[in-house]
Design a binder for these strands. Sequence first.
DNA 1: CTGTTAGCGCGTTCAT
DNA 2: ATGAACGCGCTAACAG
Lengths: 340, 340
Amino acid sequence: VTQPSKAVGLIDVARRAGVSPATASRALSDAYGVSPATRERVLAVAQELDYVASPEATRLARGGTDRVALVVPHLERWFFSAIVAGMESVLSDADLDVLLYHVDDLESRRTFFHELPARRKVDAVVVVAFAISEAERQRLETMRVTVIAAGGQNEGYPFVSIDDRKAGRQAVDHLLTLGHRRIAMLSTVDPDEPGWSHTAGRAEAYRSALAEAGLPVEDGLVETVEWGGNSGAQGMAQLLARRNPPTAVYAHSDEVALGAIRTIRRAGLRVPQDISVVGIDDHPLADLTDLTTVHQPVRAQGARTAEMLLKLLRGEPTDTAVVVPTHLVVRGSTAPPNAS
Amino acid sequence: VTQPSKAVGLIDVARRAGVSPATASRALSDAYGVSPATRERVLAVAQELDYVASPEATRLARGGTDRVALVVPHLERWFFSAIVAGMESVLSDADLDVLLYHVDDLESRRTFFHELPARRKVDAVVVVAFAISEAERQRLETMRVTVIAAGGQNEGYPFVSIDDRKAGRQAVDHLLTLGHRRIAMLSTVDPDEPGWSHTAGRAEAYRSALAEAGLPVEDGLVETVEWGGNSGAQGMAQLLARRNPPTAVYAHSDEVALGAIRTIRRAGLRVPQDISVVGIDDHPLADLTDLTTVHQPVRAQGARTAEMLLKLLRGEPTDTAVVVPTHLVVRGSTAPPNAS
DNA sequence: CTGTTAGCGCGTTCAT
DNA sequence: ATGAACGCGCTAACAG
């Protein structure tokens, strides 16, 4: 793992331009303290020699890394990769390098926070949509870098996120407005991080909506599953097995909702005639599968987070708590309850 | 963007352990040329002081970057993010940092190859599932680093990929076996990169399969669309508008297939009774939507590519052309043609 | 086995 | 406006 040896260095440029390395350096970076003439010359030579400063040397001399770490748990899921995409776009425009750390299982996650492979390599760490534990938070502090959360809240850190409670209400209220009274909830929970804001907010929305409508929250109508389509399918099977099945289902995510729909159809029931289903996220495939859901601007959340981060790094003033709006998108998976 | 000043350096460790910086350095890296006793001591002190070597300094002194760049066009799509996930896993295990470059539009792509922001920052560049032009290839060469392709072939570079032609055949042959004779193809093309291996191989599979079955390839049965569900939906609308619509559709990807299915259903037709649909990829949602498709191991391709890259970087012998197998997964979107 | 001496390539004072 | 000298933190070469 060795770099090819002979790369043109600052010295080469300086010599060729007939100036000292110091002057060459100034010409290439600061626009200050160099005569226009010499700057021109230096830049010309640099261009001609195809000179590129050694980032290691530059950073060693200057301090700072111009790099940020993105710590993301489930990159394969659309929500996460879309946030990352949004961030990368803004960060690369600002000439910050993006270091990707995929902490998909407990082991890699433990490694990240325990060994801190990113230590001294980045100016900031972005926690992408997951809840960090108190212990992890402490490890992060030892890195002494800026920390920020994208796509969810982490107490004590700046964040950009939706209002999960409000999003949940938009979904459940829609079902209530349609006239449903027996509404089930497919709640998602990540075993690695109980208490993550999404789950909490979306679940609370369900209870508060039913309460306001004067409806009881029956245990038999709430099923908690792990994230994912198959989990949703299984959860739905549980719900259908109850003596008095729901006429509508509120799922914490579109994938779970799609799983539920599969189960419903395989049971010989129709969506939405027999059972309505609503999700959250507005996954690209929700449109294709005619799923009613709550839209949230995912990529934009990433971009917004990155912008916030840039300001923090530059010491500029900025909001440290941004909540982006969501809205209901009615498609074909919801309808009034069957009059039968 | 500045690093906090007082970090413990190698010198601190050395002093505290009563040895020279050089010895400390050796103790911390090489396992060679240091007495067990002193190594113990140095390591203990390092641990106690929570010492971490400055990566910039280390890399400056040693040459090499221990970093690789992942250049990926459409991170939001499952296929791409899954490949990245597979690579990251292997690379981080090998203590290589992953630099992410998302070249999602022409501008960012041009920037990457023209400005070469990764220059001197990485030991290797991984081209994730897209075709680079001759000009881009030349720019890449000036970086003088190892280049490798994941999830598709790029002439002249080592790669890991499926056999698109074979995958396509598995899909089309399935339809033929079911008895279909009017089989349409929804071909995908990325305007930014015509001639990408996926499109070519998957399209050729269609022609060869029909030819072998003694069937003509009708222009009216081939629709070329951009990648994506909505494009697939529109393409399908075109096909349905033909005087003699197909009884089965072969789509180049699952997303396109799902779009086609939506159009078919909205037209009042049933899948698979009236029209069968088969895709390629085995997207996680294909299972949920009961889509017959051709499975390819995506994450594994990423992992395999990373392993290959590691060997290349270490100068170890390795295959430079790996083709991973695919297989048909029959679900509910395909059936024999309607006898009517 | 260990300490000394040089760089690695660039920023940045401090003079001039 | 420019040049000389030093330092960033660590590794490598050479002695001892």
